[in-house]
Write a protein that binds this DNA or RNA. Structure first.
Length: 401
DNA sequence: TAGGCCATCTGGTCCT
DNA sequence: AGGACCAGATGGCCTA
């Protein structure tokens, strides 16, 4: 630095006065026993003692030399202006860091720097032929620094574990309030979030329309974007027996009331392809709509007559999930047994809230939806999960029938 | 065995 | 400096 710029001068002066670490540190440095008492750290006391008693004179001397020698080597070789060399971007952002680096760099020519446990990286003098790099310099990883780094890493790992555990706990709580909950077969994280989103959208849709959807529509809303296993799970949780509405006893578009069910169901020709089956052939039916996001494994089949959700509306952006499509295998497995494993989020139903009326009362006046068809197992553990305001309670009751 | 899911580690970034 | 958050990597477990 043949002609130190004002900024460089200020930096050097600060280094010389050692104000870089704070005047209080300098004051303490003159009293090593105080540091011992203050920090209870042999390492820090040793470092500061040596720093100020031995290194500081050299630092000050080198600071003067540095103004004459160093500048040209660094900046002109890179074609950089002096300002950026004196105070690079990183220096501006981290003044203490930059000052410390200057301090270490100034002390770099001293042979004693190898013994400085807490000193910064001073390797530049060892690689004079190498171009100096800008930005933060790597600190020398002394044993003490390595040890501290390990401890810090272990603590960070523990915190990260705790954080993830908390997150998983929150997800568990979310699993309990979405329409499908099973202790034995947990929804995956992503499916839980998707189902929760669909659940919220479905509730909002009900509130907006002020009328209940048919069960197929509701299931479609809930299962939008879900994987087929999850779709099956939700269907099971919602007490939907595919034999009630996934068969072909009725003409397309005709409504079928499932005995005991509060829903009136669109009975339509529903060929439930096991899409994951190797026998599956896409595009096999007139009512089949390809699921946009499940081209390889899923096929969306919506009932005719516009009973499917309005996926073209802004509320239904994103993936479309297939409606209920239970595999033959899962149909063979006892749907009834499986349903008993799931906690239905009932509230305000007949058993717990006798006389409570549903805003979307079941057709036929079977208040509370307490009756069940032969294909729909009765609920034995109807209970309130939450204390809700009546409207939401009613909605919840409706959704879980 | 491939793929999905998960827990954990790790380094980076941002903020205090 | 340290904590929170995030994303990538990795390995284990499970299932089809």
């Amino acid at each position: 630095m043949a002609s130190p710029s004002p900024s460089g001068e200020a930096s050097l002066c600060e280094c010389g006065r050692m104000s870089i670490t704070g005047s209080h540190v300098m004051a303490l440095a003159n009293d090593v026993p105080a540091i011992w008492a203050w920090h209870q750290s042999w390492l820090l006391a040793t470092m500061l003692s040596r720093l100020f008693s031995e290194v500081l004179p050299d630092v000050q001397r080198l600071a003067a030399d540095w103004a004459d020698d160093n500048d040209n080597d660094d900046c002109k070789a890179k074609g950089e202006d002096h300002q950026s060399c004196h105070l690079g971007d990183d220096d501006l952002d981290e003044p203490q860091e930059g000052s410390s680096r200057a301090e270490s760099e100034m002390a770099g020519d001293d042979d004693d720097d190898e013994a400085e446990e807490e000193e910064e990286e001073c390797g530049d003098e060892n690689a004079e032929d190498k171009p100096k790099k800008r930005g933060p310099k790597k600190r020398k990883m002394t044993a003490a620094r390595v040890e501290r780094s390990k401890v810090r890493r272990l603590k960070a790992n523990a915190r990260e574990r705790t954080r993830m555990h908390d997150l998983n706990s929150a997800l568990d709580n979310l699993r309990k309030v979405v329409p499908c909950y099973s202790k034995t077969q947990k929804l995956s994280k992503i499916e839980t979030l998707r189902l929760a989103k669909n659940y919220i959208l479905a509730l909002g849709e009900i509130l907006r329309n002020g009328k209940r959807p048919d069960v197929v529509t509701y299931v479609q809303m809930l299962c939008k974007g879900l994987s087929q296993p999850t779709t099956n799970l939700v269907a099971g949780c919602l007490q939907l027996n595919t034999r009630n509405f996934l068969t072909e006893p009725c003409s397309d578009g005709a409504r079928l009331h499932v005995p005991g069910s509060p829903f009136s169901v669109h009975a339509y020709s529903y060929r439930c392809s096991r899409l994951s089956s190797p026998h599956y052939q896409p595009g096999g039916g007139p009512l089949h709509l390809r699921g946009p996001s499940y081209g390889s494994g899923y096929e969306a089949m919506y009932p005719p007559g516009g009973t499917s959700p309005d996926y073209s509306s802004p509320d239904y952006e994103g993936q479309h999930s297939p409606p209920v499509c239970l595999s033959g295998r899962q149909q063979e497995s006892s749907e009834t047994d499986r349903n008993y494993h799931y906690s239905m989020h009932y509230s305000g139903l007949s058993t717990s809230r006798p006389g409570h009326s549903l805003p979307f009362g079941p057709p036929g006046g079977r208040g509370g939806g307490g009756a069940h068809s032969e294909n729909i197992p009765p609920f034995h553990d109807v209970h309130l999960h939450h204390d809700r305001a009546p409207p939401y309670e009613d909605l919840n009751a409706f959704f879980h029938n």
